[in-house]
Amino acid sequence: MHRIGYLLSEGFQVMAIATQSVFECANVVAGSSFYEIENYSVQGGEVRSSLAMGVGTLPAPTPARSRIDTWMVAGVLDPLSVSTPAAVVAFLRRASGRARRVAGICTGGFVLAEAGLLDGRRATTHWFYARELQQRFPDVRVEDDRIYIVDGPIWTSAGMTAGLDLALAMVERDLGAEAARSVAHKLVMHQRRSGGQSQHSEMLALAPKSDRIQNALDYARRNLNQALTVEQLAEAVHLSPRQFSRVFTAETGQSPARAVEGLRIEAARLMIEQSTHPLDVIARETGFRDRRHMREAFMRGFGVPPQAVRREARAA
């Protein structure tokens, strides 16, 4: 049995405890109670969330009596407006050495940093607060464009739903890739995001208003290795090329060609970071004419060439 303790403080961000569903489904997939989950606070008793919903908690155990394997530390909606209670910081410093791993969910990274658990380590948090985390704690190597980061026994996640990806990665570490895939399927997660994936999504940034344009983007993402002309995209959603271009630009603020390039470089970047495929192969798989064409697109989109992205990923 693997015991997971959620450390909650007053005003904790309610999305943090949504990650418990991942471990709940993992027990179903495993066919046994592999994970045992409890909510804790320093004092015990009812703790109110960011929605003012009360959650009952057990008092945090003394280090000598702690049997927790994984501590999941919840953050708050705005870490700049509140201070981490000294008792929470003191508890984490004592408890971290007896646990297999400690995770900061979303702005929970600030709590881990206060406790000194991130000193000299790579970490991430919600993109909106990443710069502040770096400024407050210069000994932390903050990477503001990651879904989650694992540095030894310390895990940190980006904001909100990224905590689900972190929890799913824990399931994969504990029970294997097939179990993690089954859990993701039960949770109706559209895709399992790896830690190296960017917090920022090109699909989300485009934010089309109609289902037709959304369907065109979905079609494009599924067929990036093709040419994807305006005519082809228009035909996929049963519009004339002229009408499609007009509606697409009105809804997304971009031309179809520019949007498709954004999807290509997003997919190529993910392949570069997570695979060992040669750049020529990645360029071909994501629809670029050749490696040079992909490099030009990367310089426009990211300001760095693909080789720099790969070097950074390997160094990390």
Score class of each variant (00 low, 15 high):
residue 74 A to C: 09
residue 305 P to G: 15
residue 50 S to T: 11
residue 201 S to P: 04
residue 18 A to V: 08
residue 297 A to R: 12
residue 145 D to V: 04
residue 145 D to S: 13
residue 44 G to L: 13
residue 220 A to E: 01
residue 232 Q to V: 14
residue 85 P to Y: 07
residue 19 T to P: 02
residue 211 D to A: 14
residue 296 E to Q: 13
residue 252 T to S: 06
residue 231 E to D: 14
residue 197 Q to V: 13
residue 285 E to S: 14
residue 232 Q to L: 13
residue 205 A to P: 00
residue 48 R to Q: 13
residue 38 E to F: 03
residue 20 Q to W: 00
residue 239 L to I: 02
residue 91 F to V: 01
residue 194 S to K: 03
residue 312 E to Y: 03
residue 87 A to L: 08
residue 42 V to A: 13
residue 300 R to A: 14
residue 124 T to W: 03
residue 157 S to Q: 06
residue 249 T to G: 11
residue 95 A to G: 06
residue 292 R to K: 11
residue 63 P to E: 11
residue 299 M to K: 06
residue 120 G to D: 12
residue 257 A to C: 00
residue 220 A to I: 02
residue 296 E to T: 14
residue 25 C to T: 01
residue 274 Q to N: 13
residue 265 I to T: 15
residue 4 I to P: 00
residue 54 G to T: 12
residue 288 F to L: 05
residue 116 G to T: 08
residue 261 E to R: 07
residue 76 V to D: 00
residue 14 V to K: 04
residue 12 F to V: 12
residue 182 S to C: 10
residue 240 S to R: 07
residue 169 A to S: 15
residue 140 V to W: 02
residue 50 S to I: 00
residue 127 W to F: 15
residue 174 D to Y: 00
residue 242 R to E: 11
residue 198 S to W: 01
residue 99 A to R: 00
residue 90 A to G: 03
residue 193 R to N: 02
residue 41 S to N: 09
residue 51 L to K: 01
residue 6 Y to H: 05
residue 300 R to Y: 02
residue 241 P to C: 13
residue 163 G to W: 01
residue 222 R to P: 01
residue 207 A to M: 11
residue 247 V to I: 15
residue 178 E to H: 05
residue 88 V to W: 01
residue 146 R to I: 08
residue 256 P to R: 08
residue 99 A to V: 08
residue 188 V to S: 05
residue 88 V to C: 06
residue 273 E to V: 15
residue 95 A to C: 04
residue 263 L to E: 05
residue 217 L to E: 09
residue 82 V to G: 00
residue 295 R to G: 02
residue 301 G to Q: 08
residue 273 E to S: 13
residue 268 A to P: 02
residue 202 E to Y: 03
residue 155 W to Y: 13
residue 182 S to Q: 15
residue 127 W to K: 02
residue 257 A to Q: 14
residue 62 T to D: 12
residue 179 A to W: 01
residue 45 G to T: 08
residue 285 E to G: 03
residue 211 D to W: 04
residue 282 I to R: 05
residue 106 C to F: 03
residue 40 Y to C: 08
residue 261 E to W: 00
residue 160 M to W: 00
residue 293 H to Y: 02
residue 210 S to F: 12
residue 274 Q to W: 02
residue 195 G to W: 02
residue 10 E to L: 06
residue 46 E to I: 15
residue 186 K to T: 01
residue 226 Q to M: 09
residue 313 A to R: 06
residue 134 Q to G: 15
residue 40 Y to H: 12
residue 181 R to S: 11
